[in-house]
Design a protein around this nucleic acid. Structure first.
Lengths: 166, 166
DNA sequence: CATTATAGTTAGTTACGCCTAACTTTGTCA
DNA sequence: TGACAAAGTTAGGCGTAACTAACTATAATG
């Protein structure tokens, strides 16, 4: 539907979910802010390997949604809801990475990239379950049965390598 | 680079990876073909909940890549490489779904949708590991320790429900 | 403090993926 | 067999997300 009213609603603030790409931007800002406190446009561009112009565009959109404090030619900071949203994405990322590296024995680089892509597609329900599973496996009281370790053995026996076909 | 030569190369076949959306289309064709043998444009449109015009567009692109046999106003079939590509996507889908439903106890609908989205983002390496993990857990010789069942108990104790926040 | 390099923005383009509306083709049946 | 409905296509438009090229602002240094 492309009615006038709809377009007004859409352009005003847009309370819809963030796109994968905008999630990437806030996550990048979040991580950069954690490192060296001040975040500039170029830092984001470098990290995400996009042009500076793309960053400007994204920052405008994020500002519209009140997720970043942004003023042309100024430093970038996250607003409080922005930080919350970013932390959520980063959290998904870390849970997925941990799951892949520590339980599935996927190699770090592959896991890193896969987590980057999957973090946008899995809802909190699935992520929650994965987190619970990590916790379950990690918890000592498996009456002596270490799932991760046993799985590693299993893979070795079956000749399942870290890097696979395709 | 938008040189004339480049554009020629691009329009000729485009050997790059399929987009998520094109993967959805071949997967849909694959599944429909399995069910009632002949596949028409409308079937695809209904299944993917897109317009018939979008299907036409996708079929043109898939034909360019020689993944479907397609002729305006004709039936749609997969070529041999198309079938291979489709089967691969479907396989990922099933592995992910099985993992979520049978191990993580994610409810079926959520798993179905999450698998749909994640199947495009996870490489064969990660999928292979997940498959191995399913096999590992399913295999009887866990010296009496049923990982899935124990995890279910664990969730119950921790009050982790299928449907979670956000 | 003027110049200049760097950071950042704006404008304009391309590609993709969807949409609707209007047209064409196909097949069916009276 | 010819008219009509259903199936399918074409044309045109919108939003997103990237890009390059060219402009502007900021900062840093002699």
């Amino acid at each position: 539907m492309n009615t006038v009213e709809n377009r007004l609603i859409m352009t005003k603030t847009k309370n819809t979910k963030l796109s994968a790409s905008l999630e990437d931007y806030i996550e990048a800002i979040f991580n950069l802010a954690g490192k060296d406190k001040t975040v500039r446009s170029t830092d984001i561009a470098k990290r995400l390997k996009v042009s500076k112009a793309s960053v400007t565009g994204a920052l405008r959109l994020l500002k519209e949604r009140k997720l970043v404090n942004y003023k042309p030619y100024g430093l970038v900071t996250l607003t409080s809801p922005g930080r919350k949203a970013a932390a959520d994405v980063a959290r998904k990322h870390n849970i997925l990475k941990s799951f892949m590296v520590n339980l599935l024995y996927v190699d770090l680089d592959t896991a890193q990239e896969a987590a980057c892509r999957a973090e946008h597609t899995l809802g909190s329900d699935v992520i929650g379950k994965i987190l619970a599973f990590i916790e379950f496996v990690t918890t000592g009281s498996r009456n002596g049965y270490d799932v991760a370790k046993e799985f590693k053995k299993f893979c070795k026996n079956k000749n399942i390598k870290t890097k696979m076909n395709a």
